[in-house]
């Protein structure tokens, strides 16, 4: 299981939990696991999120490995200029 830190607005949709556990070995499995476990996240997941894995930020790389000791933090989908 991977411990996933939620940002505050997502936390409110997960009954106030700041951290949830999802079974996942890569980013794709993480996103699918979040969708299944927390249907209320669906609109935000559809809009897109960014995921910090061990301090580096990923947007789309489905097969980016995640280990059980990885620090995983969800973020609003980032945009630059």
């Amino acid at each position: 299981m991977v411990a996933v830190t939620l940002w505050g607005s997502l936390s409110e949709l997960a009954e106030g939990q700041r951290e949830v556990e999802i079974k996942a070995s890569n980013l794709r499995e993480l996103l699918a696991g979040l969708q299944a476990a927390y249907p209320a996240f669906a609109p935000q997941l559809e809009r897109g999120i960014s995921v910090s894995i061990d301090g580096k930020i990923y947007n789309d790389s489905w097969f980016q490995p995640i280990s059980e000791t990885s620090e995983v933090v969800l973020l609003n989908r980032l945009e630059g200029g």
């Binding site: 830190t5 940002w7 910090s52």
Partner: peptide, 13 residues
Amino acid sequence: EEGTKAAYGPTYP
């Protein structure tokens, strides 16, 4: 610095 929990959540490398 390295190890700080960033304002947006992750721990900085």
